[in-house]
């Protein structure tokens, strides 16, 4: 069964702005799904409609087979949302925020406290349980939003830029946590501007732009469509001129750094053979640009050109 099916979803705001122009999307059970797009593309509107925070203009949404119009309560029970902006009562203690949220899902107070304890411990917030939310750091507030979204144990978790503004250490611990809950069966939909994050975590992807889905496919399939990749090579010894490597485009960034453009059909072994023949030793290498970022820019540019043509 699909965790989420969106069919022909439209949203036109009162001021006439068309945020969604008929998007259709399927997310399979157990997936870790990236929903990407530039600012204002319609990601947050789509998420808000799924979470019942915004009324749709037309279309259908179903969660684990429960239609959001006809079986609203069943569908809602299955969704957990971590929104982009902090949206909890800043004057309420952390534990009460979780207990109240559990209560709205019909979980009795005693059981709600037990679940709040379990969830806060998992997210390293148990020590802060009596602290008012406004006194938490930015990273803790983000984790509190995740804890609140999980307290009723949803089967579909929607994360709208969950790591925005948090430092790399917390971001990595949040990645570990997200992977873990996904491994235990929770379907996750992630929107993020950190494309490295989406590439590392997600198996499937949809790219939305100007209210339309411009791509929906598997992450590896999408990345395999990259025609070229640019690698940055750090050299052991200095060189003065860029080496001539037949078939590869090479440029010298500085005396100890080379940039090499590699086509999809070319192999890295061939490149290293040529470098070895010229006595150049490579001590490390990296992608110049994140691969998904490169693909994302290509797709959004193409969508813009098509939009301009029509």
């Amino acid at each position: 069964m699909s965790a989420l099916v969106i069919n022909n979803l439209y949203k036109t705001y009162r001021n006439g702005f068309e945020a969604l122009k008929g998007i259709s999307l399927t997310v399979e059970q157990g997936d870790f799904f990236a929903l990407l797009g530039p600012n204002g593309a319609g990601k947050s509107t789509a998420i808000s409609i799924i979470a019942s925070l915004v009324n749709k203009s037309a279309g259908e949404v179903s969660v684990y087979g429960h239609d959001l119009d006809r079986e609203k309560e069943q569908a809602k029970c299955l969704i957990g949302l971590v929104p982009q902006e902090f949206n909890f009562n800043m004057w309420e203690p952390v534990v009460e925020i979780l207990v109240n949220q559990a209560g709205y899902y019909g979980i009795p107070r005693k059981e709600a406290f037990r679940r709040a304890e379990e969830t806060l411990k998992r997210l390293d917030l148990w020590d802060k349980r009596h602290t008012q939310a406004r006194w938490l750091s930015g990273g803790m507030k983000r984790r509190l939003m995740i804890a609140r979204a999980l307290v009723h144990r949803p089967r579909l978790l929607i994360l709208d830029e969950p790591t925005a503004g948090v430092d790399i250490e917390i971001r990595r611990s949040m990645w570990r946590f997200m992977r873990e809950i996904n491994r235990h069966g929770t379907t996750i939909i992630l929107t993020t501007h950190y494309l490295e994050e989406a590439e590392r975590l997600c198996r499937n992807i949809a790219i939305i732009d100007h209210g339309r889905i411009v791509e929906q496919t598997g992450m590896s399939r999408l990345l395999s469509r990259l025609n070229t990749e640019v690698f940055v090579l750090n050299l052991k010894s200095s060189i003065t001129d860029p080496p001539t490597l037949p078939g590869y485009q090479v440029s010298l960034v500085d005396a100890e750094t080379l940039e090499v453009e590699v086509l999809r059909e070319q192999s890295m072994n061939g490149l290293f053979d040529l470098l070895s023949q010229q006595g150049i030793e490579v001590i490390s290498m990296r992608n110049k640009q994140n691969r998904l970022e490169q693909m994302f820019i290509d797709l959004v540019d193409r969508s813009k050109r098509q939009g301009a043509a029509t």
Binding site: A51, S52, L53, K76, P83, N87, F88, N100, Y104, R148
Partner: peptide, 18 residues
């Protein structure tokens, strides 16, 4: 009004509360 202003009305809107 406070729940609207700080947006935690969304806690209720997302939940199965009529």
């Amino acid at each position: 009004f406070g729940t609207k202003l700080q947006h935690y009305i969304e806690e209720l809107l997302i939940a199965p509360v009529p």
